[in-house]
Design a protein around this nucleic acid. Structure first.
Lengths: 217, 217
DNA sequence: TTCACCGTCAATGTATACAATGGAGTTCCA
DNA sequence: TGGAACTCCATTGTATACATTGACGGTGAA
């Protein structure tokens, strides 16, 4: 693997998994030594991370981008813009076969009253396949690009909340509705079901946060 | 000015103004010599341009990103996602004073049946101030960031079409409606007026294109 | 004691030397 | 004659030396 890629992967992974906390300064030499490459690929990696919004360049020092409740709300407003449009376009252009099969899978998941811990990863994988199917249907490089960047930030956000089994089952039901709307080429319903899902999702995260950290610093 | 900034500015400017045509390969050494800096800042500039989507990295060669009619349509689908959401949030949070003053200005521009060549730059400047006011009202870093990137691509797209005086006057009327909706905090109307504006805008560009280039390569 | 100036230094910014890589052309074999 | 492999070369990838800059602390004078 090329050094630049390595530096990027390591730093990105550390940031997404909160091993590098928001605000942590990222000095070139220090990171270069830690990762085991020279400053040049580190600079390249930092440039990419800044462009993605995972690193902030304040003055001369780069540091891990902040992430607070405010960020979360803003992220979901942005997400609403992208995902409702994606749902609309997917409904317009979807391949029926793909979404029929996704519908069947979401039906199975939604039939349960809760999604067990052991099935959690499988459910996330299903959602990821749904996202990929939407991307392919939408077939719009600008939108897909933006969605990819958005999902990166959502990975970081996920660590803030806790998806319990009941929430996952409800999420499955919400995805089922969106999938059905896309399959039926009902653009309006696809948009609105997506908005509903995002609302529930944000409410759940915020509730979790209030539970976990009653007193934010 | 720092060399990296210089390289970025020069390349970006050349791409946006079509002095570097889509598909033009951007070899590091060649560009470094042309701009008068070393390869390092050129690499940094290219990285930023790739992140912005103005340069594509196909295999080992970077080249100016393609831009076709397809891209234009996709760009406007993306634009619809961002700008309708921006309009909604701006309507929710706007400072009345700011939009009252913008409304008055758009009223003046829309009152004319056509916006003269000499007033064109002034009108674009007005739209830019409108965009800035929306950004400030929306107050969402992710959305604002995405909008900034979008506008960059729109600058490049503008060179494809020709805004005639009648179109500009209609654009003023459309902006007036959006501004009024935001001022009235009518989120639904703000969204829909924005969608209407984008539709008209795209129709105009496409018509211009068919006129200019009846036979696309 | 306080403030302004200056020197030191640690960090980033830039250039360049060197390594690795991938592609084009050529040669040789089947 | 077709194609496979090899060689050469141009270009990118990486490391590092050197330049620049901005911050901090110390020293001096008011």
């Amino acid at each position: 693997m090329k050094a630049g890629e390595r530096a990027y992967t390591v730093l990105r992974d550390d940031i997404l998994n909160w091993r590098l906390a928001p605000g942590t300064p990222l000095a070139e030499i220090e990171q270069a030594e830690r990762i085991g490459v020279s400053r040049t690929p580190v600079r390249e990696a930092l440039a990419r991370l800044i462009a993605e919004g995972l690193v902030e360049s304040r003055g001369r020092v780069d540091s891990v981008a902040a992430f607070s409740t405010d960020h979360l709300v803003e992220l979901f407003e942005f997400r609403e813009a992208l995902e409702t449009q994606a749902a609309r376009l997917a409904a317009r252009r979807r391949d029926p076969e793909v979404f029929r099969s996704l519908r069947d899978e979401f039906q199975l998941a939604a039939a349960k009253s809760s999604v067990d811990e052991s099935e959690r990863d499988a459910f996330y994988a299903l959602v990821a396949r749904f996202d990929a199917a939407v991307d392919r249907s939408v077939d719009n490089r600008y939108l897909t690009n933006a969605l990819t960047g958005l999902r990166t930030h959502l990975v970081r956000a996920r660590r803030l909340s806790r998806d319990n089994p009941e929430r996952l089952a409800r999420a499955a039901a919400e995805h089922l509705l969106i999938t059905e709307a896309i399959l039926a080429q009902d653009e309006t319903l696809a948009v609105q079901a997506t908005a509903v899902h995002l609302h529930s999702s944000l409410v759940n995260v915020m509730a979790t946060l209030r539970q976990t950290e009653p007193q934010p610093a």
